[in-house]
Write a protein that binds this DNA or RNA. Structure first.
Lengths: 149, 149
DNA sequence: TTCCATGGTTAAGGTCCTGAAGCTTTCCCG
DNA sequence: CGGGAAAGCTTCAGGACCTTAACCATGGAA
């Protein structure tokens, strides 16, 4: 149990939080302009293929009962629909409506613009930064599969 | 309005979110073991000098009315106290109790351990990673002052 | 068939957050 | 000096998020 000081790691945590906070702030602002609360916007932005509720819960790292409410909100706004799985009538797949596709495109466009603006600062070192972050994550296993594509 | 693709920036956003999520997950777990909800733990971990409510609100990027509730929680648990400012009787300074000092030490120790574990992966490049992240943040103005020390 | 596991929902309870309204205290300008 | 505007904090109403426990319907297997 190494109790070394490692002040650089402390700094790194703080920096990561700041950068993530900046990104999340921008994302939430974009979501608010579409009249969407953060969690609903997060799902909308990352949903592509029809996805069972349970899978969404895993991806969000929360309880399935919570996902019910979030998807309820998206459904109420007409951005998403529940489609029963013909093979297993217990599961319901969440799918984008056409309105949902538009909202997703809007959110993703804003996210891309924001990322481009933020990381333009390190234009010449983007690949390096990416590799460093990736190797940080490679340390411990992360069971989160991507929801996109 | 450059609408370039910039797929690296997209990747970077996702990576930042993942790393931050890992950190936040660990922090929240540590907080939960102390019986503290996330926001209260966040304040406890970062509070050092006596701090007016308004300043806390700025640091948390939220409305002052919200801070009231969070500090109420910490006060209810005996970790924090409200001390009136003798110079301006409108303001109340939030200060740590002895119990609060202990909780803060515990939270910070866990945070340090976690950061060390995570960023040990890039041992030889920590400084470089720090500089890259710092220059990302240098891009736009961030009015958030540190609460520590 | 019977039993149990699984996917999803409901209900109750707590935390976080906002906006509007209110209180006290301070500040400033006439 | 006096009176209004402004600042700091709280309260209230309302919404969103999240967890646990209980429940229903379906599926699978002994």
């Amino acid at each position: 149990m190494s109790a070394e000081a490692d002040p650089i790691a402390d700094e790194l945590s703080e920096l990561i939080f700041h950068v993530a906070g900046r990104l999340r702030g921008g994302f939430n602002a974009a979501a608010a302009e579409l009249g969407l609360p953060p969690a609903q916007a997060l799902v909308l932005a990352n949903l592509s293929a029809p996805t069972p509720m349970r899978e969404l819960a895993e991806w969000l790292s929360c309880e399935p009962s919570n996902v019910t409410g979030i998807v309820d909100g998206l459904e109420r706004r007409g951005l998403v629909a529940r489609r029963p799985d013909p093979a297993d009538r217990r599961v319901k797949h969440v799918v984008l409506t056409e309105e949902g596709e538009r909202g997703q495109a809007e959110l993703r466009a804003r996210g891309r613009a924001q990322a481009h603006a933020l990381f333009g600062q390190v234009e010449t070192e983007k690949e390096h930064l990416r590799d460093l972050l990736a190797s940080v994550l490679a340390g411990s296993p992360d069971p989160c599969k991507s929801l996109r594509r």
